[in-house]
Amino acid sequence: MLAYTIRRVLMLIPVLIGMSLITFSIIHLIPGNPAQTILGEQATPQAIEQLEEQLGLNEPYFVQYGEYMMSLLQGDLGQSLRTNADITNEMWPFLAATIELTLFAMIFAVVVGVNAGIISAWKQNSIFDYTSMLIALIGVSMPIFWLGLMQQWIFAQELGWFPAFGRGNPRDPVETVTYFYLVDTLLAGRPDQFFTSLGHLVLPGVALGTIPMAIIARMTRSSMLEVLRSDYIRTVEAKGIHHLSVVYRHGFKNAVIPVLTVVGLQTGTLLGGAILTETIFSWPGIGRYVYEAIGTRDYPVIQSGILVIAFMFVMINLIVDLLYSYIDPRIKY
């Protein structure tokens, strides 16, 4: 297991290098002179020269790449052209907001999706099965902006159960340490604010988690149906083991691998910034941060955003792969 983990981590090095090459070249893929494009048509030659100097565009490519890598390895993503701030510092609150929302959405999606899938497979062709699969079908086919707006209308506007916008109460801020509001509010000793922040997560989290939930439910069901028919499940039943143990301990554990794959991919997608959801719910996440950078042609921010999102995707895949071999002793590459 340890040897496999080390090998699997070492295999990341070429992937990460490839990733950095791609993000590095983004600025050079702009047609024409990058500095000119960034500054626009009316830019003075002095301004262009200054920007080229600032971005190091006059250096040979490999020197530029070398410097880019050196600063990346030091955790330095460069400066924003718009605000001149360190991107590493500037991006973190947005990234934290996205991670918090994604985790909430995925926990919702996994808990509901997996259980719905398991029960549907166990009670195949029952009312529960038909109903939950119908809901799952609606879930995958529903446009997320529509679902988000409907939720806001029903649960925020009409019923007033949950807030529709933002991350917390802006009039009574708590000290931000990690920028995960659920953590910060607890660190500040403010459980009331903790629940406020939790409430703010509900609507965007459910909206964001609906599609993954539906996909997970369907995947769990089909995988479980196959496993529940297998010989070893009959063996467990022949031992007189309780249904729940048969279905969850033996059934689901054997059915979990494809589900895990889907969960990993979906988490990666959500971390990439759910721009629609973040916009609808005014959620200050990474998707909106990068989107605004595109609007202002803030190339270093765009580069960094892509790099960070790709990095998280790779990390999630690593975790999923390690989980595979932890769950199934036969998987050893």
């Binding site: 070893y232 063996t235 022949a238 007189g240 054997n254 002793p329």
Partner: peptide, 17 residues
């Protein structure tokens, strides 16, 4: 407990995990 069974396919009758 009082009644047990052995199946035909030993290769697939044990839970692989």
């Amino acid at each position: 407990n009082q009644m047990a069974m052995i199946f035909q396919e030993p290769m697939t009758s044990l839970d692989p995990l």
